[in-house]
């Protein structure tokens, strides 16, 4: 009986956590406690890559100025993945080879966490480009990301790009998110590649 009571208490606690994010108070303490082990992991990974002949990931240079760094991806799920090294919180993450937007750094540490476009709680401003026209829209993340357009036009088949006031011009081709496949009621579904590259380019929000 006590176990059943515990289950219901835990379920209520779960709902409280979802509403008030209690874990955001506990988690920073825990992250700092596990930091030594993360440092060991980073060191081992670097040595491993060195032995296998991989060069250091390196920096992202634009116009002679460093705007970000390249990081190795260690693994993760569809909704979030981990990169090796300290990336700035809020920085934008791109696939340097596939030239596409991957997500946003949400946790900074020896092993930083990136929230992808497939995460339910991601919300972004995007630019939709057709053959001749361009409109600004909002993108809601999820297993299938959705785009909402205010204008009354059909945007099926258009390309979706991240709208970022700083990098709109300089990193134009890297801001690509995916293609709009079809309309469902009042929003459009976006086809986004799901594979994860071995290394990613992390660019700071302010240069």
């Amino acid at each position: 009986m006590r176990r059943v009571v515990f289950f219901f208490l835990f379920a209520s606690f779960f709902l409280v956590e979802k509403a008030y994010h209690i874990s955001s108070f506990v988690r920073p303490v825990f992250v700092s406690l596990t930091s030594p082990l993360k440092s060991v992991r980073v060191l081992v990974f670097e040595r491993f890559f060195m032995v296998r002949g991989h060069t250091s990931p390196g920096d992202v240079i634009l116009g002679g100025k460093e705007i970000g760094n390249v990081f190795f991806v260690t693994g993760g799920t569809l909704e979030r993945f981990y990169i090796l090294g300290k990336a700035e919180r809020g920085a934008l993450v791109f696939d340097p080879d596939g030239k596409r937007f991957l997500g946003i750094v949400v946790e900074s540490g020896d092993l930083s966490t990136v929230k992808t476009i497939f995460s339910d709680d991601i919300f972004l401003y995007v630019k939709l480009r057709g053959d001749t026209q361009e409109v600004v829209a909002t993108l809601r993340g999820g297993r299938v990301p959705k785009v909402s357009v205010v204008e009354n036009i059909d945007v099926t088949g258009w390309k979706v790009f991240l709208e970022d006031s700083t990098w709109n011009k300089a990193l134009e081709e890297y801001l690509y998110v995916g293609d709009i496949v079809r309309k469902v009621i009042d929003h459009y579904l976006v086809d986004v590649k799901r594979d994860l590259p071995k290394r990613v380019m992390v660019v700071r929000r302010s240069p």
Binding site: F7, A11, F14, I22, V26, R27
Partner: peptide, 24 residues
């Protein structure tokens, strides 16, 4: 440990409730 893990490790996910239910 389940409660501590729920609060400290990774995203506090719905799966902890499912696991607890399966366990019980």
């Amino acid at each position: 440990i389940l409660v501590l893990r729920f609060l400290s490790v990774g995203p506090s996910s719905f799966f902890y409730v499912v696991i607890l239910l399966i366990y019980l």
